[in-house]
Design a protein around this nucleic acid. Sequence first.
DNA 1: GGACAACTGTTGCGTCATCAACCTTTATCT
DNA 2: AGATAAAGGTTGATGACGCAACAGTTGTCC
Lengths: 146, 146
Amino acid sequence: MSDEMPLARLFGIVLQHHYATLNERLRPFGLSAGQVPIMLRLAAGQNVTQEALARQFHVDKGAVARAARRLEEGGFIRREIDPIDRRAVRLFLTAEGERVVPEFVRFGREWEDAITAGLDADEQAMLRSLLDRVVGTCADARCCHE
Amino acid sequence: MSDEMPLARLFGIVLQHHYATLNERLRPFGLSAGQVPIMLRLAAGQNVTQEALARQFHVDKGAVARAARRLEEGGFIRREIDPIDRRAVRLFLTAEGERVVPEFVRFGREWEDAITAGLDADEQAMLRSLLDRVVGTCADARCCHE
DNA sequence: GGACAACTGTTGCGTCATCAACCTTTATCT
DNA sequence: AGATAAAGGTTGATGACGCAACAGTTGTCC
């Protein structure tokens, strides 16, 4: 199986599998995997700043900007300049966005289910817990966020 | 901490941390993280085919081709056409490659140590085991390799 | 109130990696 | 043997992401 596989490669393989799976399912929408986290976040509550998204998902603000642009071009979100702080852009789902986002949620959930199909509930919880802690360790290394 | 973080993002964060760390350390060599797995494999035994590397690390053959080219241009490996099967290219370390590869091994090990610093030995083993199984699951999904 | 710093967002460039198309070489099949 | 298929490798297009430089806006501090 894992004959001398660097730990980093394991992460890479899983991540690429995620991109491949999501990209395929999102192609009919003209979208790809990078836009999903934004949609998921908006499904849970709108009126969100790009900066808040970048911070929440530990993603570069440039990546958020590009993803938001594609979502807007596709007609899934609307962007409004915050009247109080005119630097900030606030994101909202359009009617079309509201309509499709449950499917995106399902895509994400199904991928997680598929990937952890060989693990029982305890092992899944253990995996997430260990990943959380590893992420915490490497997040501390560079920035010192919340 | 992980407030509604998609599982895939956890993998992405760790992987990006790996790239950032390795790229920084490899810059003095004119290399970057993508070339490391090849070097590590060659350190453990030379005369390897690009196709074998792609299969071992579950990486696209195109990625291996590019990484091998950069390593050759940097003078770290040598590429010889297999005289038996003239389609195949076999990779070897140069003297310079032999000289630096122990450092690359160290870079990789130090990153793994840093990332798992918050985990005890049992938890580290558990993490790798769970990752192996998840990777096995998603590897089965597309191909049906060894 | 005016100079300077800090923050949000955008864009260009680089890296990792995939896929698809192609070329060359080898294997297969009749 | 000749045609066809399959395999190893290369290249171009694309996606995700980070970093750095920049623009516009707001905050701070004399």
